[in-house]
Amino acid sequence: MVLTGAQQPGAPIQAPPYPTVAPPPVQRTGLNVVVLDPAHGGTDPGARGAQGIRESDLVLDLTFLVRRALEAQGFQVLQTRSGNENPSFDDRSTLANAQRGAVFVTLHISSTGLPGTVRVYALPDLPSRASAGGVLSWDYAQASYVSLSRKFGDAVQGQLAQRFKGSPSNVQTASVRQLRTTASPAIAVELSSVSVQNRSDLDKMMPGVADAIARGLAAFRPSYVLPAEAGAQP
């Protein structure tokens, strides 16, 4: 092989002789997709109440309503499950972590609490464990997003408090396992409860919950600015 002058060892690297297309600028801001997580499923029914009420079934129905409300607002929506499967915590987080500009909402029905109320949870502070290379530890993927998650949670909880009397007016903190490995603003929404006498009591709540989540997300959208780099606080 014959080397031209520009290809001699030590020569500066020149631009290739073919036209190049500038890569699109990396979008660091902007909410692009909502990942909805109907909790439990498969062999894990979650909370169980009278008359065979199963949390895993109810949250799937709720997810379809939330999805419709979000799509009506123009959001793109993905689901961690659409049937009676039970992906692992990590598999559910993986779906959100593979997206750029995602938010994550995990949906639950509790065993306890005043029936007819709804609470939103975000994680308490987590230790930031970015490695020297800026790679965030999977186990603490939520660490950089805790502030945004609480802001998102407040926006949704505020909407829920208007619709469901007795619900708190601000997001609460709890060490929810599903949220810890999720690298995006992430909240858990929990309705009370499977202890109701009739499933219809919970079914009646669902459109209001779906609307509150969609409106809360729309209110949160302007605040959505992703951390510049993994491991950095927003």
């Binding site: 065993s111 609470r119 929990e190």
Partner: peptide
């Protein structure tokens, strides 16, 4: 322990 974020948080 009853399954749920609220009940589990209360226990801990």
């Amino acid at each position: 322990t009853p399954s749920g974020i609220q009940s589990e948080q209360r226990a801990v």
